[in-house]
């Protein structure tokens, strides 16, 4: 479980996060949504430790990150997996080397053991026989799946995804969403996803955090988001006619 208490982050005079509280539970997919510039990326990077908040605290299963020793922080990093928006696979390494990279860096395993683990996670993300290929030879969807495989290869406790569906066709996007949710349940990971994709919100948003101007403007689930009367959320989530109609149908059916 990740607990965030009153975090603040500024860049010069620009206050990006202005005091956010949140809890992300184990075995659940939590989504952070909000308009561009609302502070989503800074919030996610603060969770990852890439930015240090000036105020407030972030704790991982009860351990407050800013009070951790360097060794504990290093260990925490190894418990984290991250799927970047552009996949961030290492161009110069093959798929196999990309996924094997964290094991090589942090575990003392024989090559055959490492290879078994790589093949197991590749199978888990429904990719096989692509070990020797390089990232440039893969489609966007395949790159995302390899990125997920690399993120889970060390059995992380926490999985972070930044716009995992960006640049994917709707069908592949759903495959990626479902894969992330399945992995979250299967390995009991605490998963936090930064997303713009309203399909993801509806499909896998077990917990949704809506950020506006650096503050948490709304919190709920994908069921509750249909019923909310929070104007900012309604304005953002149901900005398209299609989603307005979907919401209306849902409300008509449930009332």
């Amino acid at each position: 479980m990740i607990t965030v208490e009153n975090i603040h982050k500024s860049f010069g005079d620009n206050k990006v996060l202005k005091g956010i509280d949140a809890t992300f539970e184990r075995g659940k997919t939590s989504l952070i949504i909000g308009q561009s510039g609302s502070g989503k990326t800074v919030f996610l990077k603060s969770l990852l430790g890439l930015f240090q908040p000036e105020q407030g605290s972030i704790s991982f299963d009860g351990s407050i990150s800013k009070e951790m020793s360097d060794d504990q922080k290093r260990q925490l990093r190894q418990d984290m997996g991250m799927v970047f928006q552009g996949s961030a696979l290492f161009d110069s390494l093959s798929v196999e080397e990309n996924i094997m990279f964290p094991i090589k860096m942090f575990a003392n395993q024989a090559r055959s053991e490492m290879l078994d683990r790589v093949n197991a996670v590749l199978k888990r993300v429904n990719l096989e026989n692509i070990n020797a290929k390089f990232p440039a030879e893969l489609s966007g969807g395949m790159q995302k799946r390899v990125a997920i495989a690399r993120a889970i290869v060390m059995n992380p406790k926490y999985l972070f995804c930044d716009e995992p569906n960006s640049g994917l066709d709707p069908k592949t996007a759903i495959v990626i969403d479902n894969l992330i949710q399945e992995i979250t349940k299967e390995y009991q990971i605490t998963t936090v996803i930064n997303s713009h994709d309203m399909n993801s919100v509806m499909e896998i948003g077990e917990k949704i955090l809506f950020l506006k101007d650096g503050l948490k403007a709304w919190e709920g689930s994908n069921k509750e988001i249909f019923k909310t009367d929070n104007e900012s959320v309604v304005d953002f989530v149901y900005s398209s006619n299609l989603f307005k109609k979907v919401r209306q149908v849902y409300l008509d059916e449930t009332n």
Binding site: L50, Q78, Q85, A88, M105
Partner: peptide
């Protein structure tokens, strides 16, 4: 530079490298 703009350096940092 390409590693920086394609977030590959961030990926290394997140791994604790």
């Amino acid at each position: 530079g390409t590693m920086r703009v394609t977030e590959q350096i961030d990926a290394l940092e997140v791994m604790g490298i």
